[in-house]
Design a protein around this nucleic acid. Structure first.
Length: 275
DNA sequence: CTGAGCACCTGAGGGC
DNA sequence: TGCCCTCAGGTGCTCA
């Protein structure tokens, strides 16, 4: 489900819902672990404090309180939803609920359990093990063609694997990597170190454009993605290559190709995208 | 060090 | 209807 646009849309929805800064009255755990064990003791330190803001770093959400952060990653199928008092039933894959002082419950559901719920102290947020090796934010001023080009100098992997590498640039996953490479007319199998500075500039623009458009459209709702508000996203209708194998390219009508690259399904137009 | 491959887990959808 | 197979938005491990 979640690449940067989907996580950002969830963050925006949660921010709106939590704008009155409710207190965390209690935390209920319905199981001990997701991908990793949840640090229940540390997370319980947050009980009694208010949720001051919801931040995003890469594909992580950070619930800020005066006593520390709850750090959440949605994996492939994670979702946060807000339920009013007893208005909806517990679902099969609900794993954690934050009980809030305004009567709402903030519930984390994740069928595949690839997600993460962790704790970060105020002081150590930026050096938390899950955050400290992350690369540049793609929508920040630090992400430029020259910066990307420089970080690819020694990379012999494909450009698609490189832009999905969270140490190079964060937030770009399988869908948006395919869409951005199409937008920049770059073949996904091009070696990262062979992409010229001018094509890096074009790629940075394409990544930023696709991410911004996807956020504006509420993200891509493939299978079950839902915003925190329960609404679907609409960007999947705008996909130009992702999941369009054998369909005609929207630009030149050549059939879109599919092949597994670095373990992930990859899609491109052999006419529009060149090495 | 890098990069490829696979494991982690559940559910949906297609073929028979 | 049901069984078996493949595939899915991510990440992190092992191994060469």
């Amino acid at each position: 489900m979640p690449e940067l646009p989907e996580v950002e849309v969830v963050r925006q929805g949660l921010s709106l819902i939590l704008k009155d800064q409710p207190l965390i009255q209690d935390i209920e755990f319905y199981r001990a672990n997701l991908r990793d064990p949840m640090p229940k003791k540390q997370l319980r330190l947050l009980i009694g404090s208010a949720i001051l803001a919801v931040h995003r770093r890469a594909k992580y959400l950070l619930f800020e309180t005066s006593k520390g952060y709850a750090l959440s990653h949605l994996g492939m199928t994670g979702s946060w939803r807000v339920s009013e008092k007893s208005s909806d039933e517990k679902r099969k894959h609900d794993h954690v609920a934050l009980i809030l002082s305004n009567g709402q419950r903030l519930i984390y559901c994740d069928p595949r359990r690839f997600g993460v719920l962790d704790f970060a102290s105020i002081a150590k947020k930026d050096i938390h093990p899950r955050l400290q090796h992350l690369g540049v934010e793609p929508l920040s001023a630090d992400f430029t063609g020259a910066q990307l080009w420089s970080s690819l100098r020694k990379k012999k992997c494909s450009i698609k694997a490189a832009i999905m590498d969270q140490k190079v640039v964060v937030g770009v996953g399988n869908i948006y990597a395919a869409e951005a490479l199409f937008g920049a007319n770059i073949h996904p199998l091009t070696r990262a170190c062979q992409v010229s500075l001018s094509r890096c500039e074009k790629l940075v623009s394409a990544i930023q454009q696709i991410l911004k458009q996807a956020i504006a459209a509420g993200g891509s709702s493939i299978s079950d993605f839902k915003q925190a508000t329960g609404d679907s996203g609409y960007f999947q209708a705008e996909h130009r290559v992702y999941d369009r194998a054998s369909l005609p390219c929207v630009i030149c009508a050549t059939n879109i190709r599919r092949r597994v690259i670095a373990g992930r399904s990859s899609f491109w137009c052999p006419q529009c995208q060149k090495k």
